[in-house]
Design a protein around this nucleic acid. Structure first.
Lengths: 340, 340
DNA sequence: GACCGTTGTCGAACCGGTTCGCGTGAAGTG
DNA sequence: CACTTCACGCGAACCGGTTCGACAACGGTC
């Protein structure tokens, strides 16, 4: 079941078998056929480990994402799916690594033990030791998201600042004056998660620009937290008429909280934010939102990584995406009065 | 950066370094310290490929799931997450393989090229060539789900038959007489997906037992399909007062369809089914459902696989889970009349 | 017929670990 | 002091591929 066995049965040397299969040197048609026949008969496939050892490439990329802790969001799922699929198109496998930081055992395995040719990082923080570490090593990697020091590195990101701002402008245009912001969980914000920070920034600045009265909240990644968050919002300022959220997983809870409080969406209260479309469409009324193009981002990340692997000395490339807001049904003109 | 370099710097032979690190033979305290020091200085970690080649184990397991096609469901996400996490606890990495069938390139890579020590299969079909193939090869694997021929194999499954039946009994006890069943997409049913078939069976038999009038539907894995499905249900039999679903991704759409039709849940219409709790809790009212213990299933699958890897000749083991129905808020007594 | 370039194949070295058998020097024993 | 015992460490072989340099056989040229 190894190359030597094939060589023996085909009556040639191991190197000839190797060349016949790889095509890196010409082999006569006769022997090639003979070899191919033996290979087919035995169902031989070269060992990935041996090949990886010999030519230094594993044909595997690592997908690094933070440990679940409690649970993953839908967006992460979409990334994972699209990365796996895109990688398969290049004949690459994907190795999952649940690493939050640089010093993770899992992260060390990926890099130190050279299990992968390159890596794609998810859930980037503004100051991200993983990114720094990889950059210092000049290890081929692409981030889905960007750190505070983005120059000279490879990434595909979403312009959360612009997207959150767009949401604010959309609401302001509709006449809303008191708007809340529902962010990712506080621990993620404190940890410096890119989306949480830039989204918050974009929201705050745009709101200031438009002279809105705002409050910002952090919210756990689950329905119960979303519901609780809405309660807090309406308690803190009952005159609030709209909210912007980055928190996909809390969305159902936000809606529930509003329903419980007797606020009809979009008549009494508008909701918008930055959410993948498949999740925006599961709630009723469907969420008007900047759709996170998770599939495209995953695919592009893989493309960039492949490019980087092909020519390690090429200039860094990146994509900054700014998807438009999809108008669905969760926002409307601000009502005339305050709370019902 | 390889073991020879370490040996040179520590002034010992390569084998000594190997033994010092693995502890498979005694090494004097002095040299061990010296070696460790060099290793720490250089940050040396042995190459995974070389090690895999030498000792025949990759410390990687494959997670085989069908290609996304369009998109993944939340349950799959939960499985992936829990498998990765459980595997990490055993110092195993997880390689993702989007394979529907046996003959997939990706599947062949996993097995033929010996990239993994074992595999966990998701989305099992009643007749599953992947399972048969692995069984024929005696390749260590554990299925999340079970085929029609489950004896003598390793799996962790959910008793969809019993769960769907429990849902029916729950509804029947509440007085519902006309109940619809919302299954996974038709193509999956036709392909022989286990959950779709057994769930349908359990539903049908229990309904017959209770003398209910039923209709069964297939429904795409997205909100729009769910909404359309409810329209069809109410069109086909407006007197329907309840539904049971296995289709997590359509849930939001089902609710929307009911809202659009003016049916209030649970006053006019009851909804229940088999759904992971985190999704059951995002809809309003929260879904009364048999909670799919995805986290536990993933973890147990890994545990079984580890066991099987440890003692390849042990007797096959499995777990059949039958989680209880969690009473939430989406079911209630059948109304007195028919449609509003 | 000596010379040359092609074409096809082979043997050997290498990738970076692990593992087996052996040798050596120190300690223990009679 | 000669003899075993034991703890340590070494060298070599091996895992299963890839790749390089060499070489044999061949047809074509002058």
């Amino acid at each position: 079941m190894n190359i030597g066995e094939i060589a023996r049965r085909a009556g040639v040397s191991r190197s000839t078998v190797s060349y016949a299969l790889s095509g890196k040197r010409p082999v006569s048609e006769d022997t090639r056929r003979k070899i191919q026949q033996v290979v087919d008969e035995l169902g031989y496939r070269p060992s990935a480990s041996a090949r990886a050892l010999a030519n230094g490439r594993t044909s595997t990329i690592g997908l690094v994402f933070p440990p679940a802790g409690n649970h993953y969001t839908g967006m992460q799922l979409d990334f994972i799916g699209s990365v796996v699929e895109a990688a398969a198109a290049y004949d690459y496998d994907v190795l999952l690594s649940p690493s939050g930081v640089d010093s993770d055992r899992s992260f060390q395995r990926l890099l130190g033990e050279r299990r992968v040719d390159g890596a794609i990082l998810m859930e980037i923080r503004l100051e991200d030791d993983r990114v720094d570490h990889l950059a210092a090593l000049d290890f081929p990697s692409v981030a889905i998201g960007r750190t505070a020091h983005q120059e000279g590195s490879w990434w595909v990101g979403l312009d959360h600042t612009a997207l959150a701002a767009a949401c604010v402008h959309h609401l302001a245009d509709l006449g809303h004056r008191r708007v809340a912001f529902v962010n990712r969980p506080e621990q993620l914000l404190r940890a410096g998660y890119e989306s949480a920070h830039r989204g918050l920034d974009g929201f705050t600045k745009a709101a200031a620009e438009r002279g809105l009265t705002v409050r910002t909240y952090c919210c756990g990644d689950d329905a119960a937290s979303g519901q609780a968050c809405v309660e807090r919002i309406l308690h803190d300022d009952p005159a609030t008429t709209a909210l912007v959220t980055l928190n996909e997983a809390a969305l159902g809870g936000l809606y529930r909280g509003l329903a419980v409080a007797g606020r009809h969406v979009p008549r009494d209260f508008s909701v918008t934010g930055v959410v993948a479309s498949r999740w925006a469409e599961t709630v009723t009324p469907q969420l008007t939102a900047a759709d996170v193009p998770a599939e495209e981002m995953g695919r592009r990340a893989v493309e960039l990584l492949m490019e980087r692997l092909d020519q390690p000395d090429g200039p860094p490339r990146h994509h900054l995406l700014v998807p438009p807001i999809s108008l669905r049904a969760s926002t409307g003109p601000a009502g005339t009065g305050t709370a019902p």
